[in-house]
């Protein structure tokens, strides 16, 4: 770990000011990803601004929805009675990720900003465009079992590793941030970026901006939902492919449907054209197959991850069936039904 300075922010404005004044400073909260990256010398901040004492930990009612403070831990959100009752998709996705110890420390804001687990990004002995812009991407020709099949660029094929964010993408959450220019709200779909030719930039958060909350809208999908996560071991592993589905049925017809994928792209992946095929239709295996194929129409593998295309195709169909039937995937009993 490099040597660094440390300060404890007393208020949001002070934290923002300090970060704006020092381009090599970083905010730290749960630290479960940043401290790890610092031990690997992937992150080398000059200064850490500890934001954990800021009053951003609450979970509050807001306009029929919930406002999750950026410092609410993953465990606090997942086990909050209101989240469990009204946004079970989010609770389920969080509990599918990491371990209890990590969820007790990791925060909502930090989960949004966690970085890829691409082996080359973590290995400072290899090139990586995300870590060192312009150095190259060995993953394209190298070991790429865990890498992206959608939205890749010639510069980067890394995936965003979060489970929580996949559910938030499906729920159309909003990220609230504060910078020197004041507060703003970023729709979830616009928060994370595709790699393009600047893979070193993961999100559209400004340099001086601090995530203060995530707002969940009133529409919460408490009955027809699922988070289906497929991985190399049954617990405590990142998704190879995950699927979040949120659905609202009106009689025998799908009134509203959201479909978000994890483990397949540089951001939680949504395809609104494919989702639109579901609206106004009756649930059926044929419909779900059509939606699955449409979602993956532009998917391409890089050798080691070719299997993800077939895996995702089946996982989407299965998740849509689970959600339509109101039988969400259990995060304890991992048998997929």
């Amino acid at each position: 770990m490099n040597r660094f300075g440390y300060s404890r922010a007393g208020d949001v404005a002070g934290a923002v000011r300090e970060r704006a004044a020092n381009g090599a400073a970083a905010f730290i909260a749960g630290g479960t990803n940043l401290v790890d990256l610092m031990k690997e010398n992937v992150a080398r901040p000059e200064r850490l601004i500890d934001v954990t004492r800021l009053p951003l930990r609450g979970i509050e009612e807001r306009e029929g929805g919930l406002r999750l403070g950026a410092l609410a831990t993953n465990a606090e959100v997942a086990y909050d009675e209101r989240v469990r009752a009204r946004y079970p998709l989010l609770s389920s996705a969080i509990l599918a990720g990491a371990s209890p110890q990590l969820r007790n420390a990791a925060t909502t804001g930090g989960n949004l900003l966690q970085r890829t687990r691409c082996y080359y990004f973590y290995d400072t002995a290899t090139p990586c465009n995300k870590r060192e812009p312009g150095s190259g991407c060995p993953a394209r020709e190298g070991v790429n079992r865990i890498h992206a099949i959608l939205g890749t660029s010639e510069h980067c094929i890394a995936v965003h590793p979060s489970d929580m964010c996949v559910a938030m993408a499906a729920l159309d959450a909003t990220v609230r941030v504060t910078g020197e220019g004041g507060e703003r709200a970023i729709p979830f779909a616009e928060f994370h970026r595709l790699p393009g030719d600047t893979p070193e930039i993961d999100t559209n958060l400004g340099r001086d901006e601090l995530v203060t909350a995530v707002d969940l809208p009133a529409e919460s999908f408490p009955t027809h939902y699922t988070y289906l996560k497929l991985r190399d071991r049954l617990s405590y592993a990142f998704a190879l492919v995950s699927v979040a589905v949120a659905m609202e049925l009106d009689g025998g017809t799908i009134r509203e449907a959201r479909l978000a994928l994890g483990g397949v792209a540089h951001k939680p992946w949504r395809d609104r054209e494919a989702e639109a095929l579901l609206r106004g239709q009756a649930p059926s295996p044929e419909l779900f197959a059509r939606v699955s194929d449409a979602t993956l129409r532009d998917a391409r593998g890089f050798g080691g991850n070719d299997f993800k295309i077939g895996l995702a195709r089946q996982a989407i169909r299965r998740a849509l069936s689970q959600a339509a039937a109101g039988t969400p995937q259990s995060q304890t009993d991992k048998r997929v039904q």
Binding site: Y6, I28, G31, T32, V35, D36, K39, L48, D50, T52, S99, P100, Q101, L102, N104, A105
Partner: peptide, 27 residues
């Protein structure tokens, strides 16, 4: 592992279990 992957360093912080290898003591 010293990277939050094995749990051997688990302690209770204010009664809550955490990986002590990923906690900066100053915080």
């Amino acid at each position: 592992c010293d990277h939050g992957q094995c749990g051997a360093c688990t302690v209770l912080v204010d009664g809550v279990r955490m990986n002590s290898c990923l906690q900066l003591a100053v915080m």
